[in-house]
Each structure stands twice: as structure tokens, then as C-alpha cells.
Design a protein around this nucleic acid. Structure first.
Length: 858
RNA sequence: GCCGAAGUGGCGGAAUUGGUAGACGCGCUAGGUUCAGGGUCUAGUGGGUGUACGCCUGUCCGGGUUCAAAUCCCGGCUUCGGCACCA
């Protein structure tokens, strides 16, 4: 019988489905394990990235189940979002229909991969049963001041025709479509993520199960910095300009003031002065320039004198005030004290406008002369020209100056963050409606809880020009005020889809809960937090930060009982493949470049760089193709074998062949033995064996040990698989026992059963089939994980390496329990060692137990 | 520019704590197979050198610590990722 993956895979998938083999319920007697992979956006088809992500997760889920854990392993759909809406415009298909069809198809694909999900917990975030609760949480957040509306300048993507959060802008471009982001002023809803900023930061050091670099990225994103707020009084008249600085040690060197061009203060100061017209022009120019500036590498420092002065609070000197293009309006106070001698940007600015330079930090080995300086001095040094602080080290004077400013009432210590509140308004249709009402009389009023959900209307018109379809649907937005009953209009913005993905893992614990608040605390207390979360590194900031925030909000509502949603996080690497190009036809799909020739023109194919698989580069492998040609098991084992999970995986056609070959090899050896071992019990306990079988048995138990450690402690599936390959090789290697040699056959059966069971989490279909062939009635998926016997696994002999001065010279085989003194003596008595150390003096003999003897000679 | 990760055969990757570098797989070579081909099984496969037991050399480069370094320390190079006028 040949190994026919397609037949057996479909057979077992059907069986698992019928038996609901992976359905779970809360069981207080059993230890729970919540394994979660980032849920997919239903784009239409699964891609290799999904296959890799979900395979990694499935191995762990199946392994933990075999280890006796009560494993929650759910799946669902991140079903709201723009592509559905774009499809509606382009193909005249309703987003709902498009989404549901995609889910249907992708669900089939996932089932075809053999992932062990509890499908009864499947959720789709576009269903009112889901977003209803999100709307409830929104109202609660509104009542607590955690959701608020603000008129603000926002990042706007013209192509997507919607607003983007700061986190969704990458290098000045839209994270989704790459279009350049522009600024727009709109009324927007925000979540007050900054209310939890300290806790979010704090826990960055309390999540040891997260990769260091993800935590670093989050910390950077939060961007906490300690400094001072300092008041610079206006030279004439009342008032002062507030400035944030982390470098109060350079305060004595502040010689001019910079204000962000967009800052309202700029026009205020220029008002009525001769420069007003110029200033206005300048501000307009900078506003337009802004977006370009963000993306371009080079930038020209520009500024304009506002014909006003303020005073340095410590020196009392007059400081000219400039509007500048390189000062950020939304960081700190939007105003910066300029210290040209010790800040490169300020230095360049001062040179351009010929402004005063005063050195206040002096390097230890030389003296700085403002007249000859060619760049700012930004290193450490001793304070000069700084009154009572002269002679002190600048790094140590920060506290003293902060105290001094506080006592003098000229400033105070403050903390600044880079993180802004999370803008969640989207001017799109396919999202969860924001449950708010604008009443002419009462202002903003939340929808009454009893009226939830605010259902997304089905019948809408999409226009290619964009704009929210909801905003042109009177049946939707015309309503009455819940407070006064008067005429009112609904909010037509929908929520950012990152809101749905911020709590879906909670909902999985009780997907059918239909009583307020949609989350069953008892069930959540059993399952949460997620023990292991697995997904792409691309969500290091966005999704993971939002989810952490939302978890804390829900905790404070008493809805859940955990501080953090994900205890352990594994960020898997990308799947890459070489690109292929034809001079004439550009990038080619793999099937268009068979035999190294372009199938369109026959020209030689140029092999390009290896890059992340993407449709635009056409370096993609369709999972359907793999399943059809090799089966799901081969796709799974290859994804695991080619690289450890956190590293990028380079796709290799030949590697896939190799994986398939291994499975066939396993199949063949079992078949080879099948008749003879069908009725033989595998070995267990202590049995006297001849040398070859003893070695095989040792290998069997060593393999169990290694695979267990590799999966449990390190998620190193590649080495686990190679260990099983070795075991299979070992069975091939032994002499085929006679049909009557029951002991040898029992040892063979023990080895083969071990190989099969150890591979169950990795290649579940072939192993189910082989398990059944061996005469077992129960599902391999439910078999307990094997234990190893350390006595059987331990070697009786060991190879000791003999070195002279650290160089390998000889080896010897000794019993494991050999006396160390004897081993050393043997090493010295070794023929080769004797001849090589002749005429030298032995200075030292080092014995590393069970490893080597190093003889140091002089 | 700043921060972080990585660099090992022809290739993907092993080497858990400093202790036999290159497990396992791919590729390649040779051989067996009622072997057309493919498949399959067995053996070999870092480089150099020698008839051979062998010897020399070798984990990005240069130093250092150590009996012993892919692994630890210092300096540099390259690649990838993140942040980037944050005051």
C-alpha cells in the first residue's frame, strides 16, 4: 500500500469533525492551557504565512493536549475592514456577502490543513452578536471619559479615504496601501490609552514570556522621557512661553526660542506686527511641506523671526522667538528652548540666522570657542557660564537644576510621552458603528443600552469617490435623542478594526454568551490569560499594545480579572522565497518560470533577491497547490523543519520534496514491519537485550527525551523532527528480525510507535493512519505523550576525547561509571598520546566528566 | 544618526551550561536494486595535503581572556529589523 496523503488526510479530518475531537469545556479538575494564534482577516484565501503560524500553534496545542492539559484552541475571523468595502466598489458585491463567502472558503482550507480547533467557538467580528458588546464597552468608556471626541488634525489616507492612527502610519505612508498620508482636521473619537500609559509601560518589564525586542519596541513607542517644564517670561507684557526640556543642564546656554509653525502662538505673536503677512505665508508653506518633510531623508531647517522676545529665566537675557519647521507641534508644549552650542539642530539654525552661541558644557580636555565651532558639542562635560552650577558635571546637575527651578517657581519636573491617544474613528462603512447620537439640544448622547446593538444597515450605496455610505443614509442617521426624545442624528463613523481584535480572545472563552456584558466572568476566569500567543512580528506595536490597553479597561469594568492578556508571546518569522524575473515580462510566478525559462517568451529567468512572499513580487506558493500535490502533513512538517519558528523561513521546493520523502520513509518502514508486529506488544520495562536492540531501545528513549525537551522548552520543532528522523534511520539500520523473533520485533514496535506518537502533533494525519494500522482503536490525537525511561536512555559507554593543549588527538571508549583517575591514567597511557607528548613535560591534566581529557604540555 | 538582532559547508540549519564544530535535511558523487526513467536502499561528502594510520587548517575580520572559544570580553565590517528633527 502506497502512502496516499490525500485520502488519509480527508478521512481523518472527517473523523475529527464528526467526533468533535477538539471541543473543550471548562473542567476545574484539569489544568487549562489557552493557545491562541492571531486570527486571520478573511481576505479570500489562506497564504503560506497563515499555514506556518497555525501549524506552529497546532503543534503546541496538540502537544499540550497529549500532555493532559485542557486545551482551548479557538479560531475566528477579523471580519471587518477595508478590503471588503473595496470589493464592494470594484465588483459590486456587498461587503457582508464577500466576507461570508471568503470565510466559508478559508474555513475549508483551514480544515484541510488538519488544525485542531474547537470549531464550535468560531466567531466573526462583523456579527452584531459580537460588536454589540464592543458598543456597550464604548458607552462605558465614554461614561468614564476613556472615549472622547475631539476636533483634531489627523493622518488621512486619500486612497483608503479614511483616518489612520499614528501607529498605522509607517514612514509617512499608509500601513495598508502605501499611499502618502496627508493631514486633515476632523472631529474624531479617541480612546484614552494615555490614561493607562504608566501601567502599560510598567508591565513591559513584567512580561518575561515576551520577546525582548517586542517590549523594546513598545517602550520606544510609548517614549517616556523625564525632564522639566520651564517658563520663559515674555520680554514685554505678561505671559510666558512654556517649554519642555530633558536638558535643563543647558538652560544657561538657551539663546533663542523656537515655536512649531502650526502652533497657535505663532500667529498670536505676529499679530499686528509688520511681519504678520510673511509669517502667515511661512506657516502655510510649512503646513504643506510637512508631509513631504516626514518622508524625505534630507530636510532644510527653516524659520522666521516673529519680532518678539522672551527672557531666559536663569540669565535674564533676551531671546528672540522664531517659528520653525522642525519643531513638532504635538510633542511637549510645541515650543523649544534652543541651545545652539549643545544641540546640532539648534546649531544649524543659529548659524543660518546668525544667532548667539554660549558654551555651557565644556569637555574635559579642551576649551570650546563659539567662534570656531563647526558643530554642536553634545557629549558630557563640566558646566561653565552657568552661575552657581559652574564646575559641576552636566550629567549630575540635572536634579539640582530641576530643584532650583521648582524652588524659584520658574519650572517644575515633568514627564513627556510620545504615545498619543488612540484615534478610532473611521469614515467607512464596513466596521462597528460607534453607538453615539448627536442631539441638537443635549449634545452628544450615548445610545441607550437596551437599544444595542446599533446594527450596520445592509442597504447602502457605495461610491467610488469614497466617503462613508452611512453618512448618506438618512434611514440610518436620522433618529431621536434617547434623553429628550427630540430630533437627533447618529454618529456615522465606525470603529477602527483594531478595536475588534483587542478583545476577541476574551470572547472565545464564551462565544455564545448573550447576556450583558457579553463576557462570562466565570468562564473567563478559567481560561484567561492566553498562555501562549503566536503571530507575526508586524503586530509588535499596533495590535498588541491596543489589546493590552483594552484588557486593562475591561478589567477596571470588572468584566475580566487579568492585567495582561498574553502571558507568552511567540513572534514567528516571515516566509520568504527568491523572486524571479523576465527581462520583458517582469516578475514571474513560480509556475510561469518552470525550467528557468519565461513561459511567455522563453527567455532566461533572472533569479532575484529572496524576499517576503507577496503577490506583488509574485514569489508566492499557494497552500492549495501544496495540499494537492503533497498533502497537508508535508506542508506542515516542512514549515516546521526548515527553520526555527522565530526566524524567517526560506521556501525551498526541494526541501518540500525532502519532507515528503521522510513521511514516505516512515510509512514504508511501518509497512515493512506491519505483518510481523501487528500482534506483538511493544517492549516496556526492563528487558535483557542483545547489543543492537539495546542500542535501538536506547535511541528510542533518548528520542522521546529530546523531542519532549525541544517542544516543551524551546519550540524548536526543527531539531525535534531531526531527532525522529534519526530514530527512523536507526530502525532502517538494524537487521530485520525474523518473524519468530518476538523480542526483536517488540523492540522494533516500541521504536516505531514512539516515532509515530512523537510526530502526532506535527503530522497528525499520517500518524493517525499508522496508529490505526498498528491495531489501535483510539485516536492517536488522544494518546498520552510518551514518557522516557532514563535508565534505558542512558549510555553504558561513553567516548572520551583526549586532547593535547586543547587539540583533539585521540578518543577512547570507557564505561560510564569509570573512575576519573583511571580515565586520566588511560589517556596518558594511550599510544598516540604517548608518542605525541614524548620529550615534553606534562604540566596539567584536566578531566571534564563524560567529555574529555585535556593534557597540557610545555 | 540611535537602538536591537544576526553572520557557521554548495544550500536550509545543528551544537541547552565555554569542552569531539557541521546533527538532521537538501544538493552532489559512487554503488546495489528483474534498475527504462523516476523511485528506493547503502556508502561518501568543510577546505588543503599525503600511498596510508594521519597531519595542517577552519564558525564575518582583527585583538584578548582561558588548559579549552562558534559560544565570553574589546575593536571593526556586513546584513536585516525597529525608531528617526521627541527638544
Amino acid at each position: 500500500m502506497k502512502y496516499e496523503p490525500i485520502t488519509i488526510e480527508e478521512k481523518w479530518q472527517k473523523k475529527w469533525d464528526e467526533e468533535k475531537a477538539f471541543k473543550v469545556t471548562e473542567d476545574p479538575q484539569k489544568k487549562k492551557y489557552y493557545l491562541l494564534e492571531m486570527f486571520p482577516y478573511p481576505s479570500g484565501k489562506i497564504h503560506i504565512g497563515h499555514v506556518r503560524n497555525y501549524t506552529i500553534g497546532d503543534v503546541v496545542a496538540r502537544y499540550k493536549r497529549m500532555k493532559g492539559f485542557n486545551v482551548l484552541h479557538p479560531i475566528g475571523w477579523d471580519a471587518f475592514g477595508m478590503p471588503a468595502e473595496n470589493a464592494a466598489i470594484e465588483h459590486k458585491i456587498h461587503p457582508s456577502k464577500w466576507t461570508h463567502e471568503n470565510i466559508e472558503h478559508m474555513k475549508k482550507q483551514l480544515k484541510r490543513m488538519g488544525f485542531s480547533y474547537d470549531w464550535d467557538r468560531e466567531i466573526a467580528t462583523c456579527e452584531p452578536e459580537y460588536y454589540k458588546w464592543e458598543q456597550l464597552f464604548f458607552i462605558w468608556m465614554y461614561e468614564k471619559g476613556l472615549a472622547y471626541k475631539k476636533r483634531s488634525s489627523v493622518n488621512f489616507c486619500a486612497k483608503c479615504d479614511t483616518v489612520l492612527a499614528n501607529e498605522q502610519v509607517e514612514g509617512g505612508q499608509c500601513w495598508r496601501c502605501g499611499t502618502e498620508v496627508t493631514e486633515k482636521v476632523l472631529d474624531q473619537w479617541f480612546f484614552k490609552i494615555t490614561a493607562y500609559i504608566e501601567e502599560l509601560l510598567d508591565y513591559c518589564d513584567k512580561l518575561p514570556g515576551w520577546p525582548e525586542r517586542v517590549m523594546t519596541m513598545q517602550k520606544n513607542w510609548i517614549g517616556k522621557s523625564y525632564g522639566c517644564e520651564v517658563d520663559f517670561p515674555m520680554a514685554e507684557g505678561p505671559g510666558a512661553i512654556k517649554v519642555f526640556t530633558t536638558r535643563q543642564d543647558t538652560l544657561f546656554g538657551a539663546t533663542f526660542m523656537l515655536v512649531a509653525a502650526e502652533h497657535p502662538l505663532v500667529m498670536e505673536l505676529a499679530k499686528g506686527k509688520p511681519c504678520e503677512g510673511n509669517v502667515k505665508q511661512f506657516v502655510e508653506k510649512v503646513k504643506k511641506q510637512d508631509k513631504l518633510m516626514r518622508t524625505s531623508e534630507y530636510y532644510e531647517k527653516e524659520g522666521l523671526f516673529l519680532d518678539s522676545y522672551c527672557l531666559n529665566p536663569l540669565t535674564g537675557w533676551k531671546m528672540p522667538i522664531y517659528a520653525a519647521n522642525f519643531v513638532l507641534a504635538d510633542y511637549g508644549t510645541g515650543c523649544v528652548m534652543a541651545v545652539p552650542t549643545h544641540d546640532q539642530r539648534d546649531f544649524e539654525f543659529a548659524k543660518k540666522f546668525d544667532l548667539q552661541l554660549i558654551v555651557v558644557i565644556s569637555p574635559k580636555d579642551r576649551t570650546l570657542d563659539p567662534a570656531t565651532m563647526t558643530e554642536a558639542y553634545v557629549d558630557e562635560g563640566i558646566l561653565v557660564n552657568s552661575g552657581q552650577f559652574n564646575g559641576m558635571e552636566n550629567t549630575k546637575v540635572l536634579e539640582a537644576i530641576a530643584d532650583f527651578l521648582t524652588v524659584q517657581g520658574k519650572g517644575k519636573r515633568t514627564i513627556q510621552y510620545r504615545l498619543r491617544d488612540w484615534g478610532i474613528s473611521r469614515q467607512r462603512y464596513w466596521g462597528a458603528p460607534i453607538p453615539m447620537i448627536n442631539c441638537e439640544k443635549c449634545g452628544i448622547v450615548p445610545v441607550a443600552e437596551k437599544d444595542l446593538p446599533v446594527i450596520l444597515p445592509e442597504k447602502v450605496v457605495f461610491s467610488p469617490e469614497g466617503g462613508s455610505p452611512l453618512a448618506s443614509l438618512p434611514e440610518f442617521f436620522n433618529t431621536t435623542c434617547p434623553k429628550c426624545g427630540g430630533k437627533a442624528t447618529r454618529e456615522t463613523d465606525t470603529m477602527d478594526t483594531f478595536v475588534e481584535s483587542s478583545w476577541y480572545f476574551d470572547r472565545y472563552c464564551c462565544p455564545d454568551c448573550d447576556t450583558k456584558p457579553g463576557l462570562d466572568r466565570k468562564k473567563l476566569d478559567y481560561w484567561m490569560p492566553v498562555d501562549q500567543y503566536i503571530g507575526g512580528i508586524e503586530h509588535a506595536i499596533l495590535h498588541l499594545l491596543y489589546s493590552r490597553f483594552y484588557t486593562k479597561v475591561l478589567r477596571d469594568f470588572g468584566v475580566i480579572g487579568v492585567d495582561e492578556p498574553f502571558t507568552n508571546l511567540l513572534t514567528q518569522g516571515m516566509v520568504c522565497k527568491e523572486t524571479m524575473k523576465c527581462k520583458e515580462h517582469g516578475y514571474l510566478y513560480p509556475e510561469q518560470a518552470a525550467d528557468g525559462k519565461c513561459h511567455l517568451c522563453g527567455k532566461d529567468v533572472i533569479i532575484g533577491k529572496t524576499e517576503k512572499m507577496s503577490k506583488s513580487l509574485k514569489n508566492v506558493i499557494d497552500p492549495d497547490f501544496l495540499v494537492k500535490n503533497y498533502g497537508a502533513d508535508t506542508a506542515r512538517i516542512f514549515c516546521l523543519f526548515a527553520a526555527p519558528p522565530e526566524k524567517d523561513l526560506e521556501w525551498s521546493e526541494q526541501g518540500v520534496d525532502g519532507s515528503f520523502r521522510f513521511l514516505s520513509r516512515l510509512w514504508r518502514i511501518v509497512e515493512e514491519y506491519l505483518e510481523d508486529i501487528k500482534t506483538v506488544e511493544p517492549l516496556s520495562g526492563v528487558v535483557e537485550l542483545e547489543e543492537e536492540l539495546k542500542a535501538l531501545r536506547r535511541k528510542t528513549h533518548q528520542t522521546i527525551r529530546k523531542v519532549t525537551v525541544d517542544i516543551e522548552d524551546r519550540f524548536h520543532f526543527n531539531t525535534a523532527i531531526s531527532a525522529v528522523m534519526e530514530l527512523v534511520n536507526a530502525v532502517y539500520q538494524i537487521k530485520r528480525p525474523a518473524s519468530s523473533d518476538k523480542i526483536a520485533l517488540a523492540a522494533g514496535r516500541e521504536a516505531l510507535e514512539a516515532a509515530i506518537i512523537l510526530l502526532v502533533p506535527i503530522v497528525p494525519h499520517i500518524t493517525e493512519e499508522l496508529w490505526q494500522l498498528l491495531g489501535h482503536k483510539d485516536l492517536a490525537a488522544n494518546v498520552p505523550w510518551p514518557e522516557f525511561d532514563s535508565t534505558i536512555a542512558s549510555e553504558e559507554e561513553m567516548t572520551i576525547v583526549v586532547q593535547i593543549n586543547g587539540k583533539l588527538r585521540s578518543r577512547m571508549t570507557v564505561a560510564v561509571d569509570e573512575d576519573p583517575g583511571k580515565i586520566k591514567a588511560n589517556a596518558l597511557a594511550d599510544e598516540k598520546i604517548k608518542s605525541m607528548s614524548e620529550g615534553t613535560q606534562i604540566k596539567k591534566v584536566i578531566y571534564v566528566p563524560k567529555k574529555l581529557v585535556n593534557i597540557v604540555v610545555g
